[in-house]
Structures are given as C-alpha cells and as structure tokens.
Design a protein around this nucleic acid. Structure first.
Lengths: 334, 334
DNA sequence: TTGAAAGCGATACCAA
DNA sequence: TTGGTATCGCTTTCAA
C-alpha cells in the first residue's frame, strides 16, 4: 500500500480511502490511485486490516471425523452460515481425541478466531474458560460441553429418538429387543440408551442386561455380542442399533449369517442406500445440517452482541420406515 | 504483551523472548514474566506474530461439496497434512459454482494463505495468475486447472479406471454396454467417457451413441435414458455408470422396476454399503484420501522452496468385484 | 542479559 | 479533499 501511495503520489491514507470506497476523495485522485493499484498488482492484506480492526472475521470448527457423512453435513452447514456472515472457516479434525481437540481449539484461539463451533470429543473444557473470558464465542453441537462450562449447545433429541425407534419395534409386537450401542463414555450413546430404557418402561417391559451391549463399534465385538444374544434361552427378536456405524456392522453380520428368523432392526442415524437394501433399513434420522446451522447461528448471534443466558436447543429426530423395523416377531410356538 | 511487560517490570522484548523460549534470559527474570503471564491470563496473538513474520501458516482448501463422501475423504487428508506441517486449514465450499469458487479463492488470498488446494469447479483460473506471481502456492486435486495455468495437479486415472471397468463387463460376455455419465462439461466425466470408448475399441466393439447418455445426475433424466435404451431393438445388457450419484440413482431405478433380465452394472466410485446390496455392486474405486494427501504434500513441497516444473500425478483406481458386474448377458435366443 | 526503536500492512483520529 | 501520525500485537535489529 505504501508503494501504491508512492506511485500515485498521494498519502497512505488516501490509498486506504480509495481501496475501502470511503467518500471524500477527488475522482481524479481516485483514478490515479486505481491506476497505480492496477500497475503494481496490489491487493489489500486482510490479515493486517483485521489486526487493526481487532477481529479476524473467521470462526473455527472442531469436529471428530469429517469423513463421517453425519459430520460432513454438519460441517457444510457451518461453512454456509459463516460465509453468509462474511466469515472464513477454519476446520480442525480432532479424531475424537480430547488432547488433539484441545490443541486445535487453542491454536484457533491463538489466531484469535471470533468464535468456535465445537463437536466435543473431550469432557473437560476447562481450557476454554480463559478464552471465553477473553471474548471468544463458543457453541457446542451434537454433544454438550463438559461440566462447569456454560455455552450455547445444540443437540439432537437422542433419548426421544431412540425411544421412538424402540416404541416402533414394540408396536410391531416385539418384547425382546436388544440394544447395541457405542461406549457409554459418549454422551449421545448414553442418551440413546436412556431412550431405550424409557421406551421399555413405558411399555411395561423389563430391562434385561443380557440384551444390552455397549462398546466400540468394532465388527468383531458386535459379532460376538450378537452371537451371545442368539444363544440366550429367549433371544431377541428385534435389534436397536445405536449409531450408523454399528448399524452397518450389524447388517453385515446378519447378511453373512442369514437365518430363517431374521430379527427386526431399527437403527439410529440414516444410511446412504438404506432404501435399496432388502429389506430397507428403518432408521431414526437426525438432522446434521440443522445441528450445524443452528449452532453457527447461535454463535453469530453472540458475535452480534447477544449476552443472554446460554441456550440449549434440542432438534427433533424423524423415524423413517423402510421395512427392517416392521418385521414381526416369529410366531410364538405354544 | 505490553501489559505483561509492565506488570513484570521488563521490556516488551524480554517478554517476547520468554514466550518464544529464546535463550539468553535470566531464569529469575523469566520466572517474573511467567508469573505476570499467568496472573494476566495472557496468550500470544498468533495473527499478529505471523503478520510480522510475513506468512500465515495457513492454507486454504476449496471444494465443491463436502457432504459428498468422496470430497470429505479428500478434505480430511488435506487437513491431516496441514496439521502435520503446523498449518491451519481454511475450508471453503464452492457448491460447484465457478463464481463462488473464485470469490473464495480471492478471499483466501486476501488473508494471505501460504497455499491453496483447489478442486476446481471453474475452467478459467486467470484470477489465480497474479496470486501465483505474488507467491501463493497452488495445487489442484481431482480435476486439472483451466488452460493456461501451470500448477501441480493430482488426478485419478479416470480414463484408465473406466476402461478397466468396461473391459471387465466385456470379459463377462457383454457386447452392448451403456454408458451413463455426468455432463461432458466436467473433466472427470469426459475422461471416463474416453476410457469407455478406449475399452470398446480395444475389444473391437462399435461405439453406439444410442447407448451413451450424458448429463446432470438427476433421477428423472436417468430414468428416461434407461427407458429409452430398454426400448431399443438391441437393448444394453450391461451398464457402466460414471459416478457414485449416478450409480445410486440407476440402482434405485433398477430396483423400482425389477425385470427378469437385470443388466450387469459396474459403477465409477465406491459406495457405502455397496457390499450389502443384492447383488453387491462392482465398482471402480478411487482413492480420495490419496488425492488430498498427495496434493497437500506437493503444496508443502512448494512451500518448502521447491521450484521445479509443475507436476501431474495420476493415482490408480481399483476394481472391486462384488457381483453386479459379473452378471452374464442373457442367453442368446437363436 | 536486557532494552529501545523500527517495522509488518493496514486503519483511525485529528489537522491542514 | 488530503495528509501526518499513532496504533493493532508482535518480532527483529542493534545498542547498552
């Protein structure tokens, strides 16, 4: 910019005025400046401008795994909202590792992002407190922050959705319904398990630990769990799977070992091509874009100056009926 | 930092030394500074530091649609490489709109990103020339830049992969093979069509325009194309679909209208759950992570000072046999 | 070992 | 309408 000013024979400030379209510049002078800008191929350095302005017009998104379609949908929505507000988006991938999440968050804060949208992997967000006090806005999506931190949070109705899915199976005559879920260390997994129990209780059915398997969504673990349940005196006639990955692995296991009495199945999370499988996979679908959009919008409301109490938004889920959840239990042999 | 210096009763520079772990500071002084840092909750502003340093330690990724699993895999790989090099990643989504792509690229450049990884939607990248001259490194992934621009480029072997898939169908006895592809305005679509023609030619089969349908991957367009082909005197006995979305829509159409003579099918791009469909979907799989990783690594090689000629890397594809591509043609009724 | 002053590239305030 | 100068938060150069 200094070079431009020199080339045009004007002061720095005049160039700044022209570049920013500020009023009060003689058209002839402005033209001289434009000429110099063209000739020198000058373009403004936004980083420097924003340093002066004291903001960065950027927000950071921290997410566990962008190759999961759920999170990529969320991510896309956040980007759209950011751009609509004239902000750029930093994306950081935590690989569900709390330490990495923390590093990324701190790196973003060191760049002085205006705000953060976090899908937390960790459960301790103490490192965020000083940043919040320093004025960084934060919104959590999909999972809540660890205890002791108060920030806007957008969640799916995990418990309600799971209850809805399990109630659907009960309505179709099932009494022995298994729950295959992720590790209870994960908030959403706990909530979905709660929904499962709620639905059983509401129908007056007992909670049987032998029908519940929680842990990492690994194929061999799930195969073993299914085998153990199949060996029970009264094996489950229906399965509720706690997330998309688990549903996929369970479907593979069922396909590899086709039997006459295929259990009914309802899964949490929609799957690509779920409608093309035979039978189609009945699922409780979330709204990943809605999570991202809502979290980002809450964030920008804060950036616009909203100082109200932290909000917690619960987004509804939707049962999509496709066939696998409507398989009746085998006829009772009297 | 000024406040810290004042609180510790030292000069600005001393604080800077302590913060950056530079040698030559009296341990006692350093401790006083640390104390002040803690008390004031100070943390360094990286944006300001990098402004002084003349770099931003950030790169930009411009991508068409992150919710496409292909691009989210690519994106994830770019993020990983960026972090490994201590860089932050800006993500911009062009929605396959050249004008938007240009805006995003220019916004990134205005922030003075050190480099860009672009999955181009546009075919004219003239706006990049001044940026390149200004020292921004650029690598293209999945599709090449428009003519007249010379930059590192990483592509899948689209033509080779398509030829491999079509040859697979020919090997299974098919002579009438349809090609359902995306708009020829798209580089990858053109290349895959070329591979199709190559494979036909290599087998001595004629190229029949009636068996080729190009255009947007919309369900009704594809349904109409399939219906028209089915009405031919000699309808195709096998289909080659030019990308994942097209494969999906075609599978839906076939499922909705099951006939006795189901055509064989090989699709470009792998699909989630492709192994669980009946029959499993035979595909030509790309390596999205490889595209992203390689492009990002080329970029960082440039940032490290490599001034060699622009490279073009071709990544191999892989045929995954699952059943749909091995259906034989119906027996010839003599 | 420590510090003063200049500068990175822009904007803001006040004066001319 | 235009320009000088201080400033954003930090690093670098050179001197003490």
């Amino acid at each position: 910019m200094r070079d431009v000013a020199a080339a045009a024979g004007v002061a720095l400030k005049t160039v700044s005025r022209v570049v920013n379209g500020e009023p009060g510049v003689n058209p002839a002078t402005a033209e001289r400046v434009h000429e110099a800008i063209r000739r020198l191929g000058y373009r403004r350095n936004d980083s420097a401008r924003l340093l002066r302005a004291g903001r960065t017009a950027s927000i950071g998104l921290v997410i566990g795994d962008i190759s999961d379609p759920f999170y990529s949908g969320l991510s896309r929505a956040v980007e759209a909202v950011a751009r609509r507000h004239g902000h750029l988006l930093f994306t950081g991938i935590s690989e569900e590792d709390p330490a990495l999440e923390r590093d990324i968050v701190l790196a973003f804060c060191a760049r002085r992002v205006d705000g953060l949208v976090i899908v937390p992997a960790g459960t301790d967000h103490g490192h965020l407190r000083p940043e919040l006090e320093a004025g960084v806005a934060v919104a959590f999506a999909d999972r809540p922050p660890g205890p002791g931190l108060d920030a806007d949070t957008v969640l799916s109705d995990n418990a309600g959705g799971a209850a809805q899915g399990v109630a659907h199976l009960i309505r179709h005559g099932h009494r022995r319904i298994a729950f295959l879920g992720d590790s209870p260390a994960i908030f959403t997994a706990r909530e979905r398990l709660r929904g499962y129990r709620d639905a059983l209780a509401a129908a007056g059915l007992p909670y049987d630990e032998a029908l519940v398997s929680l842990g990492r969504p690994e194929p061999h673990r799930l195969r073993a769990a299914l085998a153990a349940m199949a060996a029970l005196p009264y094996p489950p006639t229906a399965l509720f799977t706690g997330n998309g990955l688990i549903t996929t692995h369970v479907l593979r296991t069922l396909a590899a070992r086709p039997g006459p009495d295929r259990p009914a199945l309802v899964g949490f999370d929609d799957l690509e091509l779920a409608d093309l499988l035979v039978p189609g996979v009945t699922v409780v679908a979330q709204d990943p874009a809605g999570l991202g959009r809502t979290a980002a919008e809450l964030l920008f409301r804060r950036l616009a100056g909203d100082r109200g109490p932290a909000q917690r938004v619960l987004l509804p889920t939707r049962l999509i009926v496709r066939g696998s959840g409507e398989i009746p239990p085998p006829a009772r042999v009297a």
